[in-house]
Design a binder for these strands. Structure first.
Lengths: 185, 185
DNA sequence: TCCGATGTGTTGGATATCCAACATTTCAGC
DNA sequence: GCTGAAATGTTGGATATCCAACACATCGGA
């Protein structure tokens, strides 16, 4: 299994940094958060920050990914089918995530957030497709996963834009027949 | 000034250990808390624990002292007189501290707790007496501080024992004339 | 324009922490 | 009693973190 076991100091320090960053994010805008702020809050040296992250954007990226994964892992898609229930669950997880972000202040980084969401969705979709269609070539499954991730993300954008307050569940259900059966002809 | 500046890793690790211990104390009895429990929660190695503390009793001691000092430091007795107001404030700080402990589970360690409270009270009393009576010899001030600390602690025990729910303020005020003016003859 | 102040990154040597292994103690269960 | 499992302490070598110093970029005010 090639289990590599990362040093616990690394796990602890990353957690301290990420927690501090998430905590600060609820108090200041991202652009006003300095690396010194983070390291002071985390009680670690500034040099240590650079041992773990390229720069503050790298941290933003990894912290958001982490938070999103927490949102998603609660649902454990590992062994579930790509069916209506799963799609609804994924969609609400995304809308929840974005709602939680809107209270913090990450304005101006929508593109970063979008990429992170799509990346994680793509991984999840690909795993599911691989399990459900072992006979297909990886190429096609990969591309399908990509398109599904873009599609679902786009749907979440559309849901936010729509002023009528329909629930995420209802909203996405309208599209599910097309996802499952294709557009036909 | 001989400022020695302790390594921030030491401060951070001690804080992690103490916080974990205090957290665990609210979930288990002290006798059921193992050092592995603490180090796991704190995300530090067991060997590191022994770098900072002799054993778990040493930790108990220092953690309780820390908590008590937080209770007391809010009042900053550094520059205040040893008058009625200060005495009432000290007394309520002690009763508050003991009440907070009774929710956690430190039964069987009353003597440790008592010693910690008396030690800290003695330091505070001595500093005040030294400032108010610079002409007196240290010997007498020290002993007075000792007796005051035992006395105030004893009063807090008596307050807890008394079933009639009189407030700490009222309770201690009854003794203040004797403290301030002596027993006379 | 220039300047001081503040933030970003980087580096080499010092040190706190980790790990694995070990001996010892405690204690529940047979 | 005995025995295995779990907890307590201890150690020497490996590694993550700290520190002080440095160069560079940014920026608001004289």
């Amino acid at each position: 299994m090639t289990e590599a076991k990362t040093d616990p100091r690394i796990l602890r320090t990353r957690k301290l940094i990420m927690d501090s960053f998430i905590d600060l994010s609820s108090k200041k805008e991202f652009k006003d958060i300095t690396i010194k702020d983070i390291t002071t809050e985390a009680m670690i040296n500034r040099a240590t920050f650079y041992y773990h992250f390229m720069d503050i954007y790298d941290l933003l990226d990894k912290a958001l990914t982490e938070v999103l994964l927490v949102n998603l892992n609660g649902k454990e898609y590992e062994n579930s089918e790509l069916n209506e229930k799963t799609l609804v669950s994924l969609f609400t997880a995304i809308t929840d995530f974005q709602t939680s972000l809107s209270t913090r202040c990450h304005r101006g980084y929508e593109d970063t957030i979008a990429r992170i969401i799509r990346d994680q969705l793509e991984v999840i979709f690909f795993r599911m497709l691989e399990r459900q269609h072992p006979e297909e070539v990886e190429e096609g499954l990969k591309l399908s996963a990509t398109m599904l991730s873009w599609g679902l993300y786009g749907a979440s954008m559309e849901w936010r834009r729509s002023s009528d307050s329909v629930s995420p569940e209802e909203f996405i259900r309208a599209a599910i027949p097309f996802i499952q059966n294709g557009i036909g002809n």
